Amino acid sequence: MSYQVDVAVMIGSGVPQGMREAGQKVCWVVLVNGEQRGTAFDTRLQAQECQAAWLAQLSANPLAMRRRA
Rank of each mutant, 00 (worst) to 15 (best):
A52K: 08
E35P: 03
E35S: 09
S13T: 14
V32H: 03
R66V: 10
A47T: 00
N33H: 01
R67A: 10
I11K: 11
L55V: 10
Q46R: 01
D6S: 11
D6W: 08
T43R: 08
Q24H: 10
V30A: 03
A47L: 03
Y3T: 09
V26M: 07
Q57K: 15
V7Y: 00
R66W: 13
E35H: 09
E35C: 09
P62N: 11
I11M: 10
K25R: 10
F41I: 03
G38D: 05
V30F: 01
R68C: 11
Q36F: 06
A60N: 13
R37W: 04
L55I: 05
Q4M: 11
R44I: 04
A64K: 12
E35I: 06
D42P: 07
G38S: 03
N61D: 15
I11W: 11
G12S: 07
W54G: 05
C27V: 00
G38Q: 01
Y3D: 14
Q48V: 01
Q57P: 07
L55G: 05
V26F: 02
Y3K: 11
R68G: 09
Q4P: 05
A64S: 12
S59D: 13
S2G: 14
Q57A: 14
M19N: 02
P16Q: 04
G14T: 04
L63G: 14
L45D: 15
P62K: 09
E35L: 07
V15A: 10
Q46A: 10
M10N: 11
R68S: 11
E35F: 02
K25Q: 08
Q17P: 03
V15H: 03
L45Q: 15
A52E: 03
S59P: 02
R68Q: 13
R20Y: 00
R66S: 14
E35T: 07
Y3A: 13
N61K: 15
Q51E: 07
V9D: 10
A56H: 11
A53W: 05
Y3H: 15
L55W: 01
V9M: 14
E49S: 09
W54E: 00
A69F: 13
L55H: 02
M65E: 08
L31P: 05
Q36V: 15
A69E: 15
N61H: 15
A64E: 12
T43N: 04
N61P: 07
R66H: 12
R44W: 09
T39V: 15
T39Y: 10
R37L: 08
P62L: 11
L63T: 13
V7H: 02
M1T: 15
A8M: 12
Q24N: 05
Q24W: 00
L63M: 12
V32D: 02
N33V: 04
V32C: 05
P62R: 10
